[in-house]
């Protein structure tokens, strides 16, 4: 039992992949390195798929690409509305990034979203984008005024929301992925073959994609609220 606990703890720990020997050593976490892998995969996919696109008679490859890209864009646009069109591309990037990050456990890598740094980074980006969208759409004065709506007395709560929203986004994603990771590691310890398959389908694939969708859905919703 002790052994399992210590092993699990070792698995849960976010290792330092390497240290850059400047400024007293900058520790680069494993999750960041895996993020690079995900980025490389996405970039390669994008470059390979967008080679010689045609206006007329698109090939199968191009049709699949167009369906995927426009489908995701339309999905996000449906959440965010017409006013937030310029944020669609970022949100699509994020949903694909989180989706790949969450299911990368299938390929034997630790999901980067298991690291609080990554989910916190995503959440910080989200809240910056939300508030930026609010300021961009309404102007600074109106944006500040929107904290005192519908009545001035709830202004502290609205200000608090600036911190609560990213915190909930960050922790939801982190908790889900970490929990799924723990469950999967335990299952793999009990029985490495067959048994993890259905659980992996649920925890890695289903839950991973759902969490990616939820993250983007909530961010989109907040942006929509901010620009209205």
């Amino acid at each position: 039992m002790e052994e399992i606990a210590s092993e699990l703890k070792a698995m849960l720990n976010v290792d330092t992949a390497f240290t850059i020997p400047v400024l007293g050593g900058i520790e680069i976490a494993e999750s960041v390195v895996i993020t690079w892998v995900v980025m490389a995969v996405m970039l390669l996919f994008a470059i390979c798929m967008t080679r010689n696109l045609k206006v007329e008679n698109p090939g199968k490859r191009q049709l699949i690409l167009e369906t995927c890209v426009t489908g995701l864009q339309n999905m996000v646009k449906g959440i965010i509305g017409e006013e937030g069109k310029q944020y669609v591309e970022y949100l699509v990037t994020v949903i694909v990034f989180i989706g790949i990050s969450n299911i990368i456990g299938l390929f034997g890598m630790k999901p980067p979203t298991k690291d609080l740094n990554v989910t916190a980074g995503l959440a910080v980006m989200s809240i910056i984008l939300i508030e930026y969208a609010g300021i961009h759409a309404k102007g600074t004065k109106k944006w500040l005024h929107s904290f005192a709506e519908p009545v001035a007395i709830i202004a502290p709560l609205n200000v608090l929301e600036i911190f609560i929203r990213p915190l909930s986004l960050c922790m939801r994603l982190f908790g889900n992925v970490l929990g799924a990771f723990v469950v999967m590691e335990l299952l793999k310890m009990i029985m490495p073959a067959i048994l993890p398959i259905p659980f992996s389908l649920y925890f890695d694939v289903f839950d991973g994609l759902i969490q990616a969708y939820v993250f983007v859905f909530l961010t989109g919703l907040f942006i929509k609220e901010a620009v209205e």
Binding site: E27, A29, M39, A46, E89, T93, N117, A120
Partner: peptide, 28 residues
């Protein structure tokens, strides 16, 4: 742990966003 890697993540995200924008969304 929350440390400098949070900044790296944000940088990564921004880089990824601009790469995707240039190589995926723009052509499509």
């Amino acid at each position: 742990r929350i440390d400098i890697n949070l900044v790296f993540t944000i940088i990564n995200l921004l880089v990824l966003y601009f790469l995707m924008k240039k190589f995926l969304f723009k052509p499509v």
